[in-house]
């Protein structure tokens, strides 16, 4: 029992050390010459553009359901006109960044983990390294940067769609014009609702790319390890998203909302 604990702790520290080294090598390679712009743009397309449908659907459902669930309670207090503001604040501050990040952890992080894991199994990464090219610069830097850039944009997009979903939800049981709904949604928002949420989604994007790349490149050589890398990427990225969210809420509460 005691030896198991020691062995698990040792593995956990080794993994942390490896992740720290990997992080260092990512930052070292960002600033190298011959940046892979074409690959970055390709990854932005794959990560960002290809995720639009699922992000749109999620954002819409979030806004729509949030409105339908809160409308009856607000009606009891005669505060139905506060629903647009409440939906926009909830969606922008917390729900959209976290839910979109969790969905992207499932879609993007696992995809990167499986892709790089498969490249590892088929010796493509070794082939890149042995040819004198830099696999970190080509594969890792581009994917992490693309994810860091695209997740905040997808989150902003989801925020907008959630407000539209909220408008449709409101008009199922009530009657409010589009312009009034938008004015009320936007008027309820302040800078401190938007900026911390944006920073949070940047961090989520970084974690999604980083964890996917780390798990993919550190997978074992069997075909089974491709699935394991994808699975580990989703689990680790999701855990990190929740941890970052918990820390971010504490920081924003202490410095921004007080």
């Amino acid at each position: 029992m005691y030896s198991n604990f020691i062995s698990l702790s040792k593995k956990a520290f080794e993994s942390l050390g490896e992740q720290a080294l990997f992080l260092g090598s990512f930052f070292r390679n960002i600033f190298r010459r011959d940046f892979e712009w074409n690959e970055l743009i390709r990854q932005c397309y794959l990560i960002g553009y290809r995720s639009f449908p699922i992000v749109a659907l999620t954002g819409f459902v979030l806004g729509f359901v949030l409105t339908l669930q809160t409308n009856p309670s607000m009606k009891e207090f005669g505060a139905q006109n506060m629903v647009p503001g409440m939906v926009s604040i909830s969606a922008i501050r917390e729900i959209c960044p976290v839910i979109i990040a969790l969905i992207c952890a499932g879609k993007i992080s696992s995809g990167i983990g499986a892709e790089l894991g498969s490249m590892n199994v088929t010796e493509q990464i070794d082939a890149m390294e042995v040819s004198g090219a830099n696999p970190i610069q080509y594969l890792v830097v581009t994917r992490i940067l693309a994810s860091t850039l695209m997740i905040p944009l997808l989150t902003i997009f989801a925020d907008g769609v959630a407000i539209i979903g909220g408008f449709i939800g409101t008009n199922i049981s009530g009657d409010m014009s589009l312009s009034l709904y938008f004015r009320k949604s936007i008027a309820a928002l302040v800078f401190s609702d938007i900026f911390p949420s944006f920073i949070k989604s940047v961090l989520f994007g970084f974690v999604i790319g980083f964890v996917g790349c780390y798990q993919g490149l550190h997978s074992n050589r069997g075909t089974e390890s491709v699935g394991l890398a994808a699975n580990a990427a989703v689990v680790s990225a999701s855990v990190w998203i929740i941890i970052i969210d918990a820390i971010a809420v504490q920081i924003t509460s202490a410095f921004v909302y007080n």
């Binding site: 490249m119 010796e123 493509q124």
Partner: peptide, 12 residues
Amino acid sequence: VGFLFQNAALYD
């Protein structure tokens, strides 16, 4: 130094 891998290791 060129290296030809067992399964060619082409970038798929």
